[in-house]
Design a protein around this nucleic acid. Structure first.
Lengths: 194, 194
DNA sequence: AGTGAACTAAACAGATCGGTTTACTGCAAG
DNA sequence: CTTGCAGTAAACCGATCTGTTTAGTTCACT
């Protein structure tokens, strides 16, 4: 075994079905019966593999997180050419491509956060870890690009990422990624990046 | 009648209870039974006044929208002093105050959008109207401030508003409003505002 | 040959979902 | 004095919710 990520075949199907349904219809609105039916699997199998809906939600967010991290690092470091300045801007291109592919309804993590008010829910930890990881990632790039204050620039870049993601789901302005990218360019200039 | 906004006393209590519960726990997770109980009212009264949960959700979003619009215009025009440039920046101060008061869990509209995937849901119209109104508002201010391209600047300012709002709910950076404000200043400079 | 993990099928539990119904009260305006 | 609106109280509807249980099958490894 396995290209299933260490999961049994049935668990793999369950997680795939859950991911699609949770993202498309919302976490609370999707019941375990529907997930099992859509995965072509019994509810018993679902509970044998994941234990609870809460744990399944956590696994869904965890896997989405891993996929996004892999995508971003891969895109930023692709071709290993380019200045740090260019690599920062490339995070926005990566975001744009990612969203065109699998984010028509906004950020899966922000959407999930809206549905998980309980701060004790294990999914909440995954969400905040993801956002903190992105901030750290952008901070490193900002430092490499020679920003006077890498922390402040990182804050600003995170804000641009999140703004672009939300607006992409809401369809109120034409090209949120382009707007974010141009704002990022300005922010880097003012931060003294080479 | 009425400082209740044209609602009967019971309807007023229902809408208040619904607003608090929907925002705090999410729309799907809150049932009509709970709303009626919390409002100290019968389910029958709820259905007599609002007709359906869907309509109640719409009324909740509608009222929140009105309150936010009133707040923003009032804050921006307060003292009627200040250049257009200052009025743009004041929209961020207004956002910051609003969020400190009643937005600990992120934007109510973005959260609602996450839970209303059905594009036919009447609440969706309220949400997109709200965002388009904000964009128009910022566009006017951008034009008054002498931006070379008021539409582009408006896009950027909306993005900063949304980014700040989302990050405020996620608590990943220290002061999202300050970051947005400083980015806005830079954007206006580059847009040639006086 | 035998063990154990992964799975199907289907019934069951108690709670809650959105929504309806019947029967009754209090009260203001014509 | 009556009509009608706003409201309470509580039972009821069928569906769905998360989660459990019992019983049996398939199959790889030892």
């Amino acid at each position: 075994m396995t290209e299933t990520g260490g999961l049994t075949p049935a668990a793999r199907k369950i997680l795939d079905a859950a991911a699609e349904l949770f993202y498309a219809r919302g976490i609370t609105a999707v019941g375990v019966d529907l997930i099992a039916r859509e995965a072509g699997v019994t509810k018993k199998t679902l509970y044998d593999r994941f234990g609870s809906k809460e744990a399944l939600v956590e696994a869904y967010l965890r896997e989405r997180d891993e996929r996004w991290r892999r995508w971003l690092t891969e895109q930023v470091e692709s071709g290993d050419a380019g200045t740090a300045h260019e690599r920062v801007l490339r995070t926005f291109d990566a975001l744009g491509l990612w969203m065109r592919r699998e984010n028509p309804r906004g950020c899966g993590f922000v959407n999930a956060a809206a549905e998980l008010p309980d701060p004790e829910h294990p999914g909440r930890k995954v969400i905040s870890e993801q956002k903190r990881w992105l901030r750290g990632c952008l901070r490193d790039l900002a430092a490499q690009a020679g920003a006077r204050d890498a922390d402040q620039l990182a804050d600003e870049l995170v804000l641009l990422h999140e703004g672009a993601t939300v607006l992409n789901g809401l369809r109120v302005i034409a090209d949120p990624v382009a707007a974010a990218r141009s704002l990022a360019r300005g922010a880097m200039e003012r931060a003294g990046c080479r």
